[in-house]
Design a binder for these strands. Structure first.
Length: 480
RNA sequence: GUAGCCAUAGCUCAGCUGGUUAGAGCAUCAGAUUGUGGUUCUGAGGGUCGUGGGUUCGAACCCCAUUGGUUACCCCA
C-alpha cells in the first residue's frame, strides 16, 4: 500500500459520525434553549473585511486574526505596488494591497457589524443567536483549537438588566440539560473602572484587567508581580490587593467591595446591577440585613420561580475577561472537576455598534464554547447512550429469498420512522454480528429459512442478549 | 510568536550503557464452526523505526537539521 502523506492544518480536526452525533446533541440542546427564550437565528460570512475586525480584540487579538491573502498578487502590472506593500507588511503593518479580508475571530463583532448595517429594519430589542465556527491563529493546546464553534445569544437595544438575568438562566438551563456541573461567575466591569480610577488616571484599564483576571490561575503574589511590571507603584498595587482579597459569600463580598471602592458612582452602579440580577434569580434568599430578616413574614420565602431555582451565581471580583468591549456585568462559566479553561463567557457592552458608526445601541450576550464543552463531557463521560445510536435495527442477510423478505419488512420499519438497514450481502453470522456491534446497533432481526417457512422473525437485543421469535405481523409494533 | 516533551505495525506501546533476522497487546484476515456476536482456540499478513544528513566496524538508540504532534507561556471558547 502506498504511503499517503496528506494532513489537515494545525489545530483543525475532521469529525467522524460518532463525534458529530455527540456534537449535534450539544448544538441542539443549546439551540433549543435559545429558541425557548425567544432568540432568532442569524448567520454571517466566514470572512469579514479585515478592518471590521482589526482593533476590536486588543493588540494581541489583532495578531491572532487569520488574514486572507489577496488574489492576483502575481499580476505583473502590480508588481511594484505589491513589493512596496510587502515592505510595509514586514514592518508589522497590515496593508490592504496584500490582505483585506480575514476569517472571523468571534461572533460578537460580526454581529455588531450586522446590527450597524441593518438597524433601520430590526425590531428592538433584537435578540439573536448564532452558531458558527470561528478561527484564531493561536498555538493549539488542550482545549484550544484554531477552528472552533461558538454559540452566542445576544440582546441589543435594551439597557434592562432583565436581559442579564435571562442570559444567566439560559446558562443554567443548558448546562443542567447537558448534566455538566458548573460554576457560573458574575462580576461587573464597573468595579474595575472604579478600581482603576482609585489607582489614578495614569493606569490603563486593559493593563490590569488581564493581570487581575489571572488571580485564580496564578495567585495573588504573581498578579502583584505582574502589576508592578506593568508600571504600577506600591500604593496602587496595594489598593488592588485589597480588592483581590475580597472573599466570603456574595453578600459579604458586596459589603467589602463598598469598603474598598468607596462611594464612587461607578461602584454603586455596579453593585446595583449585581444586586438586581442576584435578587431576581434567588428571590427567596434576597439580600437583606439581619434586622429585616427577622421581621419577614414566613410566606415571602416560599416563592421561587422554577426556571431559576437552584441557580447559583458566584460573585467573583477578580473576574475581568480579556475582551475590552465589555462595560457592565460580565459572566464566565467553568466546569467543575475538570482541568479546562472557561466553557462560556459573556457580558454587557454599551456601545459596540458605535465602532461602526451607529452609536447608542447597548447590548449584552453570552457565548458557549462547544468544543470545550465536548471535551468536558467526554472526560466526565456525560454523553447519554442514546445519542450514540445511529441505526436502531439491522436485518441479517441470510440468503437470496431471506433477504428479499427482510427487505420488505425493512421498508415497513423505515415507514414507521425506525432507523434500520439490511446487511449488504450474504455472510456468516459472526461477520454480521460484528458489523452491528461496531456500529452500536442495539437490535438485530434474523430471518432465515426457518422464519421464512413460519412467516416469523427473530428479534435479538445485542446489549442484553435476549431474543424472541415473533409473527411477521407483530414486527411493526415491536417496541424498539 | 517563545519554550519543554514526543515520533517504532492500522491503534496503544515495549525495545537494556549502540551489537545477529525490531517485539507485545488490540485490530484485520483465514480456519476449528453452513443459525448466534460481545467472551474460546489455532494460524497468517502487516514496519526503509517521521524525513534528511552526520558520528561509528555497526544506529530505532548518540549528534545536527527538518517536518508533524503535544504541553505550557502570551491570549482566550
Amino acid at each position: 500500500m502506498a504511503k499517503v502523506s496528506v494532513s489537515i492544518p494545525q489545530g483543525t480536526r475532521d469529525f467522524g459520525s460518532e463525534v458529530i452525533r455527540k456534537r449535534d446533541y450539544i448544538f441542539s440542546t443549546i439551540r433549543n434553549v435559545f429558541e425557548l427564550y425567544g432568540f432568532e437565528p442569524l448567520e454571517t460570512p466566514a470572512m469579514e473585511n479585515l478592518e471590521t475586525l482589526m482593533g476590536k480584540y486588543g493588540e494581541e487579538g489583532d495578531k491572532l486574526i487569520f488574514k486572507i491573502l489577496n488574489n492576483g498578487l502575481d499580476n505583473p502590472d502590480k508588481e511594484k505596488q505589491v513589493k512596496a506593500d510587502l515592505e510595509k507588511l514586514l514592518q508589522g503593518k497590515t496593508v490592504k494591497g496584500i490582505t483585506e479580508r480575514a476569517l472571523k475571530y468571534d461572533l460578537t463583532i460580526p454581529f455588531a457589524r450586522y446590527v450597524a448595517m441593518n438597524h433601520h429594519q430590526l425590531v428592538f430589542p433584537f435578540k439573536r443567536y448564532q452558531v458558527q465556527p470561528v478561527w484564531r491563529a493561536e498555538r493549539p493546546q488542550k482545549g484550544r483549537y484554531r477552528e472552533f464553534y461558538q454559540c452566542d445569544a445576544d440582546v441589543v437595544g435594551s439597557h434592562s438588566l432583565l436581559n442579564e438575568t435571562e442570559l444567566a438562566t439560559m446558562y443554567k438551563a443548558v448546562f443542567e440539560k447537558l448534566n455538566i456541573p458548573v460554576e457560573i461567575k458574575i462580576n461587573s466591569r464597573k468595579f474595575l473602572t472604579s478600581l482603576s480610577k482609585r489607582c489614578g488616571e495614569s493606569v490603563r484599564i486593559t493593563d490590569f484587567t488581564i493581570a487581575i483576571d489571572k488571580m485564580e490561575k496564578i495567585g495573588l503574589e504573581k498578579v502583584k508581580e505582574e502589576l508592578s511590571q506593568k508600571g504600577l507603584n506600591k500604593e496602587q498595587v496595594s489598593i488592588i490587593e485589597k480588592y483581590l482579597l475580597i472573599s466570603g459569600n456574595n453578600q459579604e463580598k458586596i459589603i467589602q467591595i463598598k469598603e474598598v471602592l468607596g462611594n464612587d458612582e461607578e461602584c454603586q452602579k455596579g453593585i446595583a446591577d449585581i444586586e438586581f440580577v442576584l435578587n431576581h434569580l434567588t428571590p427567596n434568599i434576597s439580600i437583606v440585613t439581619p434586622g429585616e430578616a427577622e421581621g419577614l413574614p414566613p410566606a415571602t420565602s416560599i416563592v421561587t420561580p422554577s426556571a431559576a431555582e437552584g441557580l447559583q451565581l458566584t460573585l467573583d471580583p477578580s473576574l475581568a475577561r480579556g475582551l475590552n468591549y465589555y462595560t457592565g456585568i460580565i459572566f464566565e462559566v467553568k466546569a467543575k472537576g475538570v482541568q479546562m479553561g472557561s466553557i462560556g463567557g459573556g457580558g454587557r457592552y454599551d456601545d459596540l455598534t458605535g465602532l461602526f458608526g451607529v452609536p447608542n445601541i447597548p447590548g449584552v450576550g453570552i457565548s458557549f464554547g462547544v468544543d470545550r464543552i465536548y471535551d468536558v463531557m467526554e472526560e466526565l463521560n456525560l454523553f447519554p447512550m442514546h445519542v450514540q445510536v445511529g441505526t436502531q435495527v439491522l436485518f441479517f442477510n441470510l440468503g437470496d429469498q431471506e433477504s428479499r423478505k427482510a427487505f420488505e419488512w425493512l421498508q415497513q420499519l423505515r415507514q414507521k420512522g425506525i432507523r434500520s438497514e439490511l446487511y449488504h450481502e450474504f455472510a456468516k453470522f459472526e461477520k454480521q454480528f460484528k458489523y452491528a456491534e461496531k456500529k452500536k446497533i442495539p437490535w438485530i432481526i434474523i430471518i432465515g429459512d426457518k422464519e421464512l417457512k413460519e412467516n416469523t422473525c427473530t428479534v435479538k437485543n445485542l446489549a442484553f442478549g435476549g431474543q424472541q421469535t415473533i409473527p411477521a405481523g407483530e414486527l411493526i409494533n415491536f417496541p424498539f
